[in-house]
């Protein structure tokens, strides 16, 4: 506004506009109480995951170094009791946060990359490749997740990376369809037509116009996907398909189920990991829903 400031470069204008947009979106998000609650819950878990070595000795995860008795109930020494090998459930819970979050995020990243690329290409380009990609997505979409994940996990073998891959490659189709429909609608907008007339190449159109406009939806969708991915990790680990060398919430529950903790009344071995799963998944879901409302004006009006 002021006349003394030097003219802004295109890049500066773009950056200012982006900052303003973020500020506006943050203001909208802040008005969403459930989303804020989700963010707070998530923040706690992220801090626990990052500070795990400070909160509990990692040595406590080794069966050979276990100091407690078998399935001891909570005490001053073991706040959440012990498991069947005498390890502290609390220590496992704290370190399990890392694995559960890590696998969830890794799987989501894989799913997002595949989904976004497939969705963009299927929506932006015309011709048989994009049609085939669209069909492929539709076919993939109806394949039930768990059976597919099970056979993939059996074939690939049990490791942290593999379980992330399994979840990633089975959960991308919904994202791809969302991105495709967004891309299709953006493609019809006047500014893209103008860019085309001005001679913008496909790469330029895609990276400068389509992608930035699709990103908000991707962002909201990512958060919801993390929720599903963490839930999936827990279920796959529970079924014994997780990394046998690492403790996650799912593998703890597998152990608890294996020793029949629910029939012996060892609630401390079953309840805490499940509550952690519920809280984290709920947090991601609430944040995702809030983001959807922020980025989708149609939802906001309701």
């Amino acid at each position: 506004m002021s006349t003394t400031s030097p003219p802004l470069s295109a890049r500066q204008i773009a950056r200012r506009r982006r900052t303003a947009a973020w500020r506006r979106n943050w203001a909208l998000f802040r008005g969403h109480r459930a989303g804020l609650v989700g963010l707070c819950i998530l923040a706690v878990f992220v801090v626990v995951a990052l500070a795990a070595p400070l909160l509990a000795d990692g040595e406590g995860l080794k069966v050979t170094k276990a100091t407690g008795g078998v399935l001891e109930s909570p005490s001053g020494e073991f706040w959440l009791g012990t498991d069947e090998s005498g390890r502290s459930v609390l220590t496992m819970l704290i370190w399990g946060t890392r694995i559960s979050l890590l696998v969830g995020l890794l799987a989501t990243a894989i799913s997002m990359v595949i989904g976004t690329v497939v969705g963009l290409v299927a929506g932006f380009f015309e011709g048989w490749t994009s049609r085939l990609l669209y069909r492929l997505t539709e076919w993939f979409l109806v394949i039930p997740f768990l059976p597919l994940a099970i056979i993939l996990a059996v074939v690939l073998g049990r490791s942290l990376l593999n379980i992330a891959i399994v979840i990633g490659v089975t959960s991308w189709p919904a994202t791809a369809l969302l991105i495709r429909s967004q891309t299709l609608s953006i493609k019809e907008r006047p500014y893209l037509e103008r860019a085309r007339v001005l001679g913008a190449g496909r790469w330029h159109q895609m990276t400068r116009h389509v992608l930035p406009n699709v990103m908000p939806m991707v962002f909201a969708n990512t958060t919801l996907t993390v929720a599903v991915a963490i839930l999936s990790e827990t279920t796959l680990s529970f079924l014994g398909l997780g990394d046998p060398g690492r403790v996650s919430w799912g593998s703890m529950l597998e152990g608890a189920f294996g020793v029949g903790a629910m029939t012996t009344g060892s609630w401390w071995y079953i309840v805490p990991p499940g509550i952690c799963v519920v809280l984290v998944v709920l947090a991601f879901t609430l944040i995702g829903q809030a983001l959807e409302e922020v980025f989708n004006p149609r939802l906001r009006e309701r």
């Binding site: 929720a227 839930l231 827990t234 279920t235 529970f238 529950l253 608890a256 189920f257 629910m262 029939t263 009344g265 609630w267 079953i270 309840v271 499940g274 799963v277 519920v278 809280l279 998944v281 709920l282 879901t285 609430l286």
Partner: peptide, 23 residues
Amino acid sequence: LTLYSMPEWWLGLLLIAGLSVGF
């Protein structure tokens, strides 16, 4: 939303502990 965020088998384990075994 809570049910949606819950692994259904964990809910089942809780129900077994509470309603089948007794608490």
